[in-house]
Design a protein around this nucleic acid. Structure first.
Lengths: 239, 239
DNA sequence: CGAGATGTTGAGCTGACTCAACGGGAGTGG
DNA sequence: CCACTCCCGTTGAGTCAGCTCAACATCTCG
């Protein structure tokens, strides 16, 4: 069984058996964390983390105690291979709930991308998608009301989970508390609760045991004004 | 007189005379635009643009007519050299006011970074800073009220303009309309006006003829809860 | 000299916030 | 096995930052 990163990259372009094997081999140093920081502001990481199971997030804390979640790292996500150009991290990365993570020395990544150009290209593509997602989050928070905003986030998570084949029916893991959703969307936990209730009342989603079910993806997309192009999922078809 | 990109990269690490010259030589194909798109959603650009004079911005339009500005490109800014991995742009880039721009074929960039590793590293660093800025914008819009938010934006612009030596005293070009400020900060033009008046009333800034003067940078930083670390300006000192 | 773009002001409205309370479930310790 | 506590979700009621709508003032430029 190959790792999730392989699954993700395969959605971009075919990998040879050798490349897939090289990617899998990279994950020998794995460990489990639970709700703890993997990387903290000010660190200068010498390794790259790959999420194998569970979720993590990038976030920033503000002096007044507020927190903003900048991105989710779901299985198959790599926290940036380029970061070692900076002297220090300007944000932190933390596991959400329990997560299994592989630590990969940066040299291993460098060797890998040098030997296998297809992998290099795939990782590039993946990093660019992460940037595109970040841009869309800005649009989301700045321009859409809380209802549309939350629906939009769920559509995005849905598609990303589909990409790594972690959905069954309309259901997938969503290990977030309402507070964390609030820190993602820039709204209060109280308000998250009310908006979520509306989405449930309209029959769009159900949540249960840290899992979410989307009952009508198209209806949710419509509610979210969702245009999936920014995820660049079609790279394979177009290439 | 060398171009502004050279100035910017020099703030990261020294460039040899040869490297600086190579960078300058790249800008032979220049032109002037005024408030028009350089790149549009759906395009697949085969070249990279370097802003020499004036400003440009990345932006996205929404179906309901709203617009979000995602980033400003000021002199010395390159619109990403990696974008050609994607099939199509997911946002547009437009000149703000009148701007002089150099069009650089992507192959020229590739050659340059291959021949001069120091340049490659500098461009890397610059791209990473752009990402860091984008993350901070998300924090800004999601977590800070409109007053703090606007002050924060002005602090950032101030430091970026300083980096490319485009400030004189506390004054610098700010070719933005209040509507564009609104599209940047996620607030109404009407509200931009009122917040701006408050910043003026408190003696923090003055605007006149599309130029801004900051009268007390420290006071403005305090009002903005501004922490400049995300701009990674100290790369040189730390390295 | 007219027209569109930009900036300014006033007045009323509303989406999201604050504060405060309560319920249920999971873990912990006695 | 119960009592306690903490975390998380839920609900209600009042408040406010920022919005909408609408008018008007300036300015630029053809």
């Amino acid at each position: 069984m190959s790792n999730t990163l392989t699954t993700k990259l395969t959605s971009f372009s075919d990998l040879s058996a050798e490349e897939a094997a090289a990617l899998d081999a990279v994950c020998n140093d794995t460990f489990t964390v639970k709700g703890r920081d993997l990387i903290r502001v000010g660190d200068r990481p010498e390794q790259v983390f790959l999420v194998l199971n569970g979720w993590a997030c990038r976030y920033k804390d503000l002096p007044d105690g507020k927190r903003q979640i900048l991105a989710y790292l779901i299985p198959g996500d790599l926290c940036d291979p380029h970061i070692f150009i900076f002297e220090q991290m300007d944000h932190s990365i933390r596991a959400i709930g329990e997560a299994r993570v592989a630590a990969i020395p940066k040299q291993v990544i460098l060797d890998l991308t040098e030997r296998y150009p297809a992998l290099a290209r795939g990782l590039w593509w993946s990093a660019l998608v992460d940037e595109a997602v970040s841009r869309e989050w800005l649009v989301n928070v700045a321009q859409r009301d809380s209802y549309t905003r939350m629906a939009h986030l769920f559509c995005e998570i849905w598609l990303r989970m589909c990409q790594v084949k972690l959905t069954t029916g309309g259901t997938f893991d969503l290990p977030l508390t309402q507070e964390q959703l609030g820190d993602t969307l820039g709204i209060t936990p109280v308000h998250v609760n009310r908006v979520l209730q509306r989405l449930r009342a309209e029959g769009l989603v159900t949540t249960r045991d840290r899992r979410m079910t989307i009952h009508d993806v198209d209806a949710l997309k419509a509610a979210a004004e969702f245009d999936p192009r920014y995820l660049h999922l079609d790279a394979r078809a177009a290439a």
